[in-house]
Amino acid sequence: MEGLKVSKAELMVYLHPSKSKNVTQAIDNEFSSMLFKYDETFDGVLLAYSASTKNELGKILPGLNPYFGVKTQAQLLLFYPKPDMFLEGKVVKLGEHSIHIIVLGFSSATIIEEDIREEFTHKVKHGEEVYASTVNRRHKIEVGTIVRFQVKSFDEEILHISGSLLQPHTGSVSWLDKHAEDANAESNIKKRKGREADNISASVDEDSLSLKTDHKNRKSKKHSKGSSR
Results as ranks from 00 to 15, higher is better:
2 E>F: 01
3 G>I: 04
3 G>R: 12
4 L>G: 07
6 V>L: 08
6 V>P: 01
6 V>M: 06
7 S>P: 00
8 K>V: 07
9 A>W: 04
10 E>M: 06
10 E>W: 09
13 V>H: 05
16 H>W: 03
17 P>M: 00
22 N>H: 02
27 I>G: 00
29 N>M: 08
29 N>A: 15
30 E>M: 02
31 F>H: 04
32 S>L: 10
33 S>L: 08
37 K>W: 05
40 E>D: 15
41 T>F: 11
42 F>D: 10
44 G>C: 01
44 G>L: 01
45 V>P: 07
47 L>M: 06
47 L>T: 02
48 A>S: 10
48 A>Q: 05
50 S>D: 10
53 T>E: 06
57 L>Q: 11
58 G>N: 03
59 K>A: 12
62 P>Q: 00
64 L>T: 09
66 P>I: 08
67 Y>D: 05
68 F>K: 07
68 F>Q: 09
70 V>S: 03
70 V>M: 00
70 V>Y: 01
72 T>G: 10
72 T>A: 04
74 A>R: 01
75 Q>C: 13
75 Q>I: 08
78 L>I: 04
84 D>W: 06
87 L>C: 05
88 E>H: 04
90 K>I: 15
92 V>I: 10
93 K>F: 10
96 E>C: 02
99 I>W: 00
100 H>T: 01
101 I>H: 04
102 I>D: 04
105 G>S: 00
106 F>H: 03
107 S>M: 08
107 S>Q: 01
107 S>G: 02
108 S>F: 04
111 I>D: 00
111 I>L: 02
113 E>Y: 08
116 I>F: 05
117 R>N: 03
118 E>D: 11
119 E>D: 11
121 T>Q: 10
121 T>W: 03
125 K>R: 05
126 H>S: 10
127 G>M: 09
128 E>M: 13
129 E>P: 02
131 Y>H: 08
132 A>R: 07
133 S>G: 07
137 R>K: 13
139 H>G: 06
139 H>D: 14
140 K>N: 12
141 I>T: 02
141 I>Q: 03
142 E>G: 09
142 E>V: 14
144 G>M: 08
144 G>Y: 09
150 Q>D: 03
150 Q>I: 08
152 K>G: 10
153 S>R: 00
157 E>Y: 13
158 I>W: 11
159 L>Q: 07
160 H>S: 14
161 I>D: 06
162 S>G: 05
163 G>Y: 11
165 L>V: 12
166 L>V: 01
168 P>E: 15
170 T>K: 03
174 S>H: 15
175 W>K: 12
177 D>S: 06
179 H>R: 13
181 E>N: 12
187 S>P: 02
189 I>E: 10
190 K>G: 00
190 K>V: 09
192 R>D: 13
192 R>T: 09
194 G>N: 15
195 R>L: 15
196 E>V: 05
197 A>K: 14
198 D>F: 06
199 N>L: 11
200 I>S: 12
202 A>L: 13
202 A>F: 15
203 S>N: 07
205 D>R: 09
206 E>C: 02
208 S>P: 06
208 S>V: 15
208 S>A: 14
210 S>M: 12
213 T>M: 12
217 N>Y: 14
218 R>Y: 07
222 K>R: 13
222 K>V: 12
225 K>R: 07
226 G>K: 15
228 S>L: 05
229 R>P: 01
